[in-house]
Design a binder for these strands. Structure first.
Length: 157
DNA sequence: TAGGCCATCTGGTCCT
DNA sequence: AGGACCAGATGGCCTA
């Protein structure tokens, strides 16, 4: 977070100064999901050493599919989507296997990872103090809104 | 210790 | 049918 832009206006300066001013070390992304209520079969492949940033990056760079990492999972016990219909009609239950559930979990993790990458990119574009702690996601969004509004106003003058 | 933030799992819904 | 997206639930970590 060292490469932040200088503040162009006292209003922006004041806004930024309202946000937190202490430093916090970066958190570990994709830490172990211990203590969750998922069935033990869900844990066996994905709560171990796979679950870190490098693993996700390797998956993305190799173009590997989620199923590639669950091929050794012998459990195919189905789980059910207990659907409720808007129209009152009973919906067809969607049956998924344990393997499919694991694959969906991996896809969701990758999706959230790319979302966080986008937040990191946005953080770099938004002005903050160099010594400021890392902006949270909601702070990043709100500051970006104000910053864009400010720059738009500046252009219109 | 409470509250904020975040990662993860999960099931529902929408879309291809 | 299956993937993407979303929101709720849950638990861990950190700070005041």
């Amino acid at each position: 977070m060292g490469t932040q832009r200088p503040f162009l206006d006292p209003a922006m300066f004041n806004f930024v100064s309202d946000i937190n001013c202490t430093d916090v070390p970066p958190r570990c992304v994709f830490g172990p999901a211990e203590g969750l209520d998922a069935p033990s079969s869900y844990h066996m492949d994905f709560y171990g050493p796979h679950q870190d940033l490098n693993f996700i990056r390797e998956m993305e760079s190799s173009g590997a599919q989620a199923d590639d990492f669950s091929a050794d999972c012998s459990s195919v016990e189905p789980s059910f989507y207990r659907g409720s219909s808007n129209s009152g009609r009973a919906r067809r239950k969607r049956v998924i296997t344990t393997v499919q559930r694991q694959a969906a979990n991996i896809r969701e993790r990758k999706r959230m990872f790319s979302l966080n990458e986008a937040f990191d990119e946005l953080r770099k574009k938004v002005p903050t103090f160099a010594y400021e702690k890392r902006l949270s996601r909601i702070e990043t969004l709100r500051l970006a809104i104000v910053y864009i509004s400010f720059m738009t106003e500046l252009l219109e003058k």
